[in-house]
């Protein structure tokens, strides 16, 4: 499969066969007995200026993917090619310099903000590390601007993270990620802690920045209406693998993979008493340590066939930029 054809423009980022396994230790000696295959052989590309959405079940490996791309977690295998360079092969020092171009907005803002620094310091810190502005005054101005941009009052810059609400903390994380004018931002659930009005503000802002600076996003989210609004293409993950990848309209109009279909049918809609046909998944959520044989979705798939229990489906091109891993589409 030629991954380049996934997107029209030259890719900014190409992920090839990315793997991240976490050891499971057990027994008195804490010997490694098995692995959680959090990300298992993932490949996709992201073009400059585009937004790739990643959706999928909780625990399927979305955050791990984001972190492994930025090498906040060391990948177990695979390549991450950013502007022609394999990040996975860089020395820690070289990687540190690359961080200017690659930023992440963390899912759990509280755990990722230093509790002993004021909010102003937190946003300013990356500018100091990368010597972005000449004077402290310029940096402080930038901090005030960024805070305003994410809807926080700049007079609150002397306060500490614990003095803010969950959604406000999330916005601190966003301001910090924007501070360096990065090229790629991995946004891990950036708006899930925000009310819909602030959510709109942040999404509009992210879109403006994209237009202005040609920013590229990998946008991880559970909120399928937000993903539909904000992303160009969407990848659907299940148990550490990509099961479907498609331009957004195609995906929402005609989901191919049975998992994608059940996902779309479960979106809650802001209309009371509206009844909808839900595809309820039966069967236990399988373990990423011992994934099912064949198609890993076969234990819960309403369309499961005999072949699904034994043969792993290929991630195959369906034309028009669509990819799916499912035996229903074997030619």
């Amino acid at each position: 499969m030629n991954l380049l054809e996934q997107s029209e423009c030259k890719p900014l980022l190409e992920v090839r066969g990315l793997k991240k396994y976490f050891p499971i230790r057990s027994g008195l000696l804490k010997k490694v007995t098995n692995h959680v295959k959090a990300v298992d052989d993932l490949s996709f590309t992201v073009a400059t200026g585009e937004t790739l959405g990643i959706v999928g079940e909780s625990g399927c490996g979305k955050s791990t993917t984001g972190r492994a791309i930025l090498r906040l977690l060391e990948p177990t295998g695979g390549e991450v090619i950013f502007q022609g360079e394999n990040l996975a092969a860089l020395s820690p020092n070289e990687m540190r310099m690359k961080r200017k171009d690659l930023q992440i907005i963390f899912q759990d803002p509280f755990a990722s903000l230093n509790p002993r620094m004021t909010v102003g310091e937190i946003i300013e810190e990356p500018m100091i590390i990368f010597e972005l502005y000449e004077t402290s005054k310029e940096r402080k101005e930038k901090v005030a601007e960024l805070m305003q941009v994410v809807g926080l009052k700049s007079e609150n810059s002397e306060r500490f993270p614990h003095e803010f609400s969950g959604g406000q903390r999330q916005r601190i994380g966003i301001a910090r990620a924007l501070a360096l004018n990065p090229k790629l931002i991995v946004a891990d659930e950036p708006v899930s802690a925000l009310d819909v009005s602030i959510q709109s503000q942040v999404l509009n802002l992210m879109r403006d920045l994209q237009k202005q600076y040609g920013l590229t996003y990998i946008f991880i989210s559970h909120n399928l209406s937000v993903v539909k609004h904000f992303c160009d293409r969407i990848g659907v993950m299940y148990l550490g693998r990509m099961v479907e990848l498609a331009p957004k309209n195609a995906l929402y109009e005609e989901p191919l993979h049975p998992y994608t279909r059940s996902l779309l049918s479960a979106v809650p809609i802001a209309k009371p008493k509206m009844k909808r046909e839900r595809i309820i998944l039966t069967g236990d959520v399988p373990s990423p340590a011992n994934p099912p044989s064949g198609c890993t979705f076969h234990t819960r798939c309403p369309d499961c066939m005999e072949i699904c229990k034994t043969d792993k489906p290929e991630f195959q091109s369906m034309g028009d930029g669509r990819y799916v891993a499912c035996h229903l589409y074997n030619q």
């Binding site: 909780s58 969950g166 559970h222 399928l224 959520v285």
Partner: peptide, 13 residues
């Protein structure tokens, strides 16, 4: 308090 924000829609349901 925001019990399902970090959950995908199927698990949320």
């Amino acid at each position: 308090d925001e019990p399902t924000t970090a959950l995908d829609v199927t698990i949320q349901a």
